[in-house]
């Protein structure tokens, strides 16, 4: 399990954060900087940077590339609100 926005999310030990979130029914975890548009996985292979997420306090990690580990604290990125 890792936590996403305070919620416990299961993973199988070799899944990306994005895969585990999708498997848990979570479709989006980022709000864009200009218009606050919702984003999740798009390219799935590290090319588009749409799936950015904060991993253990480090912002803007590609959820489709980061392998989920138990105990990880994953947070959504609301870039409009944070002004990023």
């Amino acid at each position: 399990m890792f936590t996403f926005d305070g919620r416990s999310i299961p993973h199988d030990g070799r899944q990306s954060v994005a895969a585990a979130l999708l498997a848990a029914g979570i479709r989006s975890w980022r709000g864009t900087r200009v218009e606050g548009r919702r984003r999740g996985v798009f390219c799935g292979i590290g090319v588009c940077f749409d799936c950015l997420v904060t991993v253990n306090g480090v912002p803007s990690q590609r959820a489709c590339l980061v392998v989920a580990r138990s105990g990880d604290v994953i947070e959504p990125q609301d870039e409009l609100r944070e002004g990023t």
Binding site: R27, R37, V41, C48
Partner: peptide
């Protein structure tokens, strides 16, 4: 760009 739209390769 709606969540739920992915590339075929994705």
């Amino acid at each position: 760009d709606l969540p739920g739209v992915v590339t075929a390769g994705g």
